Amino acid sequence: MPLSLALPDCRSLALDALPLVMGIVNVTPDSFSDGGLHAGTESAVAHGARLAAEGAALIDVGGESTRPGHAAVDAESEMARVLPVIAGLKARLDTPISIDTYKAAVAEAALAAGASIVNDVWGAQRDPGIAAVAAAAGAPIILMHNRETIDAGVDIFDDVLRFLERSIAIAVQAGVPRTQIVVDPGIGFGKTIGQNLALIRRLDRLGELGCPVLLGASRKSTLGHITGRTVPAERLAASIAAHLYGASRGAAIIRAHDVAPHVDALKTWAAIDDTTKADL
């Protein structure tokens, strides 16, 4: 049976061929890579439309930075940022929209405004009510691993697997079908450089969870450490390299700032790799 995610509007996203590219729209003043560039509604909507035109299969809209040391944003402020953008994108595009939040209230409002997917960077463990919101809307949920602190001594695979098992249990208990759950190892979130690289290297281990995997290494500081590129926007080549490796290890969704080059790179990888099912 083909692997896919069912969306609330009765459409589906196929996940059994070429990895999908999720384009990033940060409606924030302080995101690590592009904070402030698309903080206004008009600019954010235009950026999302451009990413869709470049081949993004879904657009991820977030209103609170998750970089280290970020300033927390209350739900009302977050909604004020993201809801007009989601409504604007919904009016212009057929591309599914995901809401990047860990707050149940924000997720509920975003789904009502036109979002189709919930993307929670705390895996439904910061605000477990978010899983019930996704279930009620019939929306898929992306559950990401996160840590409050970095611990070089932790067995990162065990930590990620156990955390995501708890997240999946929360979502299923709330009524989200397991077939509607995507997992994310959380590259760059509470992990050392070595742990981040190990997770990408053995991304296939997340297959133990029985859910599709999202990989988001785009412009992350680990890539800056490897390449010496201190400006996040200059880490495109490194981002593509990390994501292609992840695709070879089973990533079904790639979350990226730079959509067009990722789409081209994935098409080329799929054409060369005789193990892919992509119809090119």
Rank of each mutant, 00 (worst) to 15 (best):
157 F>W: 10
158 D>Q: 04
158 D>E: 14
158 D>W: 00
160 V>I: 10
161 L>T: 06
162 R>E: 13
162 R>S: 15
163 F>T: 12
164 L>A: 08
166 R>Q: 10
166 R>D: 15
168 I>H: 00
168 I>R: 00
169 A>I: 09
169 A>G: 13
169 A>L: 09
169 A>E: 14
170 I>E: 12
170 I>K: 04
171 A>K: 01
171 A>N: 09
171 A>W: 03
171 A>C: 14
172 V>K: 08
173 Q>I: 06
173 Q>E: 15
174 A>V: 10
175 G>V: 11
175 G>P: 10
175 G>R: 12
176 V>S: 10
176 V>Q: 07
177 P>W: 09
177 P>A: 13
178 R>Q: 12
179 T>K: 15
180 Q>L: 14
180 Q>M: 11
180 Q>F: 06
181 I>N: 12
182 V>L: 10
184 D>V: 05
185 P>H: 05
186 G>K: 14
187 I>N: 08
188 G>T: 11
188 G>D: 10
189 F>S: 01
191 K>A: 06
193 I>S: 04
193 I>V: 15
193 I>A: 08
194 G>T: 03
195 Q>R: 09
195 Q>H: 15
195 Q>Y: 12
196 N>G: 04
197 L>K: 11
198 A>L: 13
198 A>D: 15
198 A>R: 12
199 L>D: 10
200 I>A: 05
200 I>Q: 06
202 R>M: 13
203 L>W: 10
203 L>C: 04
204 D>C: 08
205 R>Y: 02
205 R>V: 00
205 R>G: 00
206 L>R: 02
206 L>M: 14
207 G>L: 07
208 E>I: 00
209 L>W: 01
209 L>F: 01
209 L>A: 09
211 C>R: 09
211 C>Q: 02
212 P>N: 11
213 V>C: 14
215 L>S: 08
215 L>D: 02
216 G>E: 06
216 G>D: 14
218 S>C: 08
218 S>K: 12
220 K>S: 02
220 K>T: 07
221 S>G: 13
221 S>V: 13
